[in-house]
Amino acid sequence: MLPFQRVAIIGMGLIGSSLARAIAARMPTVHLTVSDRSPEVCARVRELQLAEDVTDNAATAVIDAELVILAVPVGAIAAVAAEIAGDMATGSVISDVGSVKESVLKALTETMPDHVAIVPGHPVAGTERSGPDAGFATLFEGRWCILTPADPASPAAQQVAAFWERLGARVEMMDAAHHDRVLAVTSHLPHLIAYSIVGTASDLETITRSEVIKYSAGGFRDFTRIAASDPVMWRDVFLNNREAVLELLGRFTEDLVALQRAIRWGDGETLEALFTRTRAIRRSIIDEGQDTANEDFGRSHGGRPHGTGDDS
């Protein structure tokens, strides 16, 4: 039995369009309605035939939906939730795909009527692409989807978990604040560093921008790939998870100073010990199946950035 028969997705960026494709592939009898504030994106979604119903009116999209998923930047969730709150069906469930959860849980709790169950979610998957052309149905296969409901044992939380499992994801329940600390380490800080190092390289007076682009070997190219991610989405992530990011950034700065000291004093033993330990962690990530294979597949099936609704 399907967890939900009628689903609405608000925002047709990478995650929203991938959700639409995954639902069509794995739950073809589900009636899907999608919405994006951009008429151009809606037109493209219709061309791609990603859903039965497409509208640029979010409130219209959620009428009669059993599950509503907000696939918009974290900073837009409160406004979108307020826009659709009055049209949410009794007994429906609202979720999202943002990589910050504490602020989302607060926004939805303050906005949604009592007859709507709130189950915030975060599929830990993505590429640097955006827009409806960038999505692909297998994006969530073998990836973690973290759910942060107030009550993990609630029927709504179990339904949303079953929904993601049908899409091929592995589901984990987690406290919202703990989620934000974990993602600050595994996602938010790496993005911040990638944005920073690209900015540093482009600002060096002795190295031209053309040289940075021309001679970007594997290390710079691979590390800075995520700096191509949507700037609005990541602006909202850092503003909404500022405490956890700042805490981790402080710790990272201390570790970087220690590394700087080891290089200055020729302390090869310290450098090798660090590199050996971190190499083992990287290998564990590969063994866990959370490397870039899925993202590489997405790039080979994705397209140019397009549209306004983006993943988080």
Score class of each variant (00 low, 15 high):
D151T: 03
R251S: 14
D310W: 13
V7M: 04
F223A: 11
T200I: 15
G13S: 04
L14P: 11
V93S: 01
A20M: 08
M233S: 08
A81Y: 02
A177S: 11
A273C: 02
G13H: 09
L246T: 14
A194E: 11
A228L: 06
A24D: 10
G303K: 07
A43Q: 15
S17G: 09
V212S: 03
W234S: 09
L14M: 15
V232L: 12
E128R: 08
R46L: 03
A293I: 08
G218E: 01
A176E: 04
S99D: 06
E288W: 13
R282Q: 05
M112Q: 05
P113V: 09
A58V: 00
I63K: 13
R181L: 12
H179Q: 06
G266K: 11
T308G: 06
A89C: 01
L14V: 14
A273P: 00
E40M: 05
E272Y: 00
S95G: 04
R283H: 13
I77A: 02
A227Y: 03
R46M: 05
D311L: 13
V185Y: 10
G91Y: 06
Q290I: 09
R277D: 14
S300N: 08
V182K: 07
L239Q: 12
I285W: 07
G302K: 02
V237T: 10
V198I: 15
A244I: 03
Q260V: 04
S229N: 10
R304A: 15
D180K: 06
A81T: 04
E211W: 05
V68I: 15
L147D: 05
D296G: 08
V182C: 12
L147T: 11
S154L: 04
E40L: 12
G91R: 04
D180L: 03
I226S: 03
S216F: 00
T186V: 15
R181S: 10
R282S: 02
D64N: 14
N294I: 13
N57Y: 01
P3Q: 02
E295S: 13
N241E: 06
E165K: 14
I9P: 03
G75Q: 05
V119L: 07
T60L: 12
G250K: 05
T148F: 07
K101A: 08
K101H: 11
Q5T: 13
A51N: 07
R21P: 06
R221N: 04
E288H: 12
A137F: 10
G266C: 11
R264C: 04
V245T: 14
R277W: 00
L32A: 02
R261I: 08
H306A: 05
C145L: 11
N241G: 12
I9M: 10
D203T: 14
F163K: 07
G121Q: 10
D311Q: 10
V104F: 12
I285Q: 07
A89G: 12
I193E: 08
A176M: 04
I69Q: 06
A177H: 09
S99N: 13
V41H: 02
R181Q: 14
G218K: 01
D236A: 06
T90R: 14
S103D: 13
V100L: 07
I226R: 02
T292F: 12
F4N: 03
W164Y: 15
V182L: 14
A137E: 15
F140V: 09
K214I: 00
P73M: 06
A82L: 11
F220Q: 03
I10W: 04
I146M: 10
V245D: 10
T29I: 01
